[in-house]
Computed example of a mutant assay.
Amino acid sequence: MARKRALITGITGQDGSYLAEFLLDQGYEVIGMIRRSSTVNFERIRHIQDRITLTPGDLLDEVSLIHMLREHRPAEVYNLAAQSFVQTSFSQPVFTGEVTALGVTRLLDAIRIVDPEIRFYQASSSEMFGKVVEVPQRETTPFYPRSPYGVAKVYGHWITVNYRESYGMHASSGILFNHESPRRGLEFVTRKISHGVARIALGLDTELRLGNLDAQRDWGFAGDYVRAMWLMLQQDQPGDYVVATGQTHSVRRFCELAFGYAGLDYQKHVVVDERFFRPAEVDLLVGDPSRAYEQLGWKPEVSFEQLVEMMVEADIRLLRG
């Protein structure tokens, strides 16, 4: 029997690397789309690179996407590629829109042209809720994005719904709340904290400069969340799902735990720096994952405390070399 084939855009990112591992374990043949650029970083997938096929493609170029789909004929496509850093979206709003919003349309349209039977997953985001109108946020909560990134994700989300309803495509969106891991980029606050703790613990630094310590997020482990993506594409009917833990913690609490694991007091090392505040802040994001629990049979396995410890330990190991 032929192995099922899946294509992942953004395979070199945190989620892409965990999803590729998961799909390989399920017996899939995994194709990863990479842009033709000199800055592609294979660090997160190096350990599985000999087991996956990498192919050139670009969300800015629909023709390249059509060629890619025709060549590889995947049964499932997971769109994880995006300009995904919120802070950057304020300084590069047009580029963020091109990739994170219109890129979704180009990919959906390429699928419609090549093979509308391909099952499609769109990485939506809790940042779409932004200035929240209800707590916790669920699939029916109105969106009120507070960044160009959040706005672009709302477009990507609705164009996925539109293609599903207009062309009968099996297109689903996962509205993922913050999901972290030792593979998170250093520009994200959780990894900035775990890496900063490791540097201070090893005597390489004395302080860590952060923005709003009172911002609260629903943080889970990325390795748990990619399982939900796959489960969505195994359902008979496509749909949209909030993927979250349902619990919220402040940046301050993350600091307290992270420094605590290294035997340090965060108050002696963390400096609040106005430069790291966003132009429009999102204060409280917490998801209601009931639908994912009930319909997908999904639940997170790694707790918040385990996640923080895992990230600090990994960064201490990394810096010790």
Rank of each mutant, 00 (worst) to 15 (best):
G13E: 03
Y261V: 01
D115W: 12
L69H: 06
R217H: 13
L65Q: 09
R3S: 06
G203F: 03
A110C: 12
T248R: 11
F221L: 00
T206R: 01
E187Y: 08
G196D: 14
S194Q: 09
D109V: 06
L264A: 05
V132K: 08
W158I: 11
R278M: 15
R278E: 15
A222S: 08
H170A: 08
R70Y: 12
R291C: 02
W158M: 10
L284R: 04
R112A: 14
P116M: 08
K299Y: 13
G10R: 00
S290G: 05
Q235Y: 00
V114F: 10
S64K: 05
F276Q: 00
F143K: 08
F259Q: 02
K131I: 07
A75Y: 12
V312I: 02
V63F: 12
H157R: 10
S91K: 12
P136G: 01
S64D: 00
A292Y: 03
I34E: 01
R317A: 15
P279R: 13
I52N: 05
I113E: 09
A201P: 07
L24W: 09
A228Q: 05
Y121V: 01
K153G: 05
F22N: 14
Y144D: 14
A152H: 01
T12V: 04
D315I: 11
Y241Q: 08
M311K: 00
I200F: 07
G57S: 03
E139F: 13
F143M: 10
D288W: 06
I316S: 06
W158S: 08
T55M: 02
A262V: 06
D25H: 14
K192W: 13
A2V: 03
E187W: 02
Q235T: 01
A6W: 11
T39L: 10
S17E: 04
E98Y: 02
Q306N: 02
R106I: 01
P145F: 12
M1G: 06
D218V: 02
Y163P: 03
V242P: 04
R252S: 10
R44H: 10
R209A: 11
Y225C: 09
R46C: 14
Q137P: 07
K4G: 13
V271L: 09
R291K: 15
V270Q: 01
I8C: 00
A292N: 03
M1P: 03
I175W: 11
L19E: 07
R209I: 02
E29R: 04
V161E: 15
W230E: 10
E134M: 12
